[in-house]
Design a protein around this nucleic acid. Structure first.
Lengths: 139, 139
DNA sequence: GCTGGGGGCTGTAGCGGCTACAGGGTCAAG
DNA sequence: CTTGACCCTGTAGCCGCTACAGCCCCCAGC
């Protein structure tokens, strides 16, 4: 068991970090591999050991991912958050871009929904030979 | 050049098929590889030769893909379209499922959009140290 | 001391749905 | 005969994980 067994309240194993941040263990290792999360220190038995800074960084990443930012943009956001003197406008721009991307996807999906809706209401319960849906897909 | 140069109006090379259906050549070969499109006959020079049936099938696939159906569902739809006696309800069910999926994505994206919108309007043009966006991502 | 079970480690392969090469062959026009 | 557009195969890459296989480590209980 791990809960309550850590010597130091502030140092966690990967499993505990995962539970605390809601990020899958494999994903955490993946983030380390691609350099999004700095390499963790290792225990005597070669276990990764995480501190509060890792927790903060990983939560940051998760929140950004939840907002749909691609990993490369998350990487940029992390770097920016380490440079407090740069203008906020840089960050704002990334958010605007992401917003535009989401709105593009939204309008695509709206069109798709309408199309599918139209199709779905054409079923009259016969056999496929009279199926308007198949008909609509056929040239 | 290929346009008008085919011996048989009804037999096309992969490039012509691609242009006619709006599907990338590599994608057509990919569909063949995964068994979505039947293997084409071959010319003396080992070129794929397509007939009207291929065109029809590929257009069907493209339309279904445009509606967002995953390839495995497209495969099912194709099989159904070859079985005219089965009930249309089977097809209708696949459409309903896809519709539900699209609506799920839509509502996810709506939430995302609102969140990003909220964030985007918080920029007051200062430096990152006062940036509400970075703040919102930090724990 | 010995065992069992729950963690952890590395490295690699797979998902979906393409897309992009490299390194060759084919074909028709000039 | 050469040029250049097209085609062929096979393989690797994209994104963002996820899922193994095959090992090691650690602690509790007996």
């Amino acid at each position: 068991m791990n809960g309550g067994c850590t010597n130091d309240d502030a140092s966690l194993t990967i499993g505990t970090l995962g539970k605390r941040t809601g990020v899958n263990i494999e994903t955490i290792r993946y983030y380390e591999r691609i350099g999004l999360l700095p390499e963790a220190a290792r225990s005597a038995g070669n276990y990764r050991v995480y501190g509060p800074a890792h927790v903060r960084r990983l939560v940051f990443i998760r929140k950004a991912r939840d907002l749909g930012f691609p990993l490369e943009v998350v990487r940029a956001l992390l770097e920016l958050s380490d440079q407090p003197d740069r203008p906020c406008a840089v960050v704002d721009h990334l958010v605007e871009e992401q917003l535009a991307e989401v709105e593009r996807k939204l309008s695509d999906l709206h069109r798709l929904r309408d199309e599918l809706d139209r199709l779905a209401h054409q079923c009259r319960g016969g056999s496929i030979s009279e199926c308007r849906i198949i008909e609509a897909l056929s040239p």
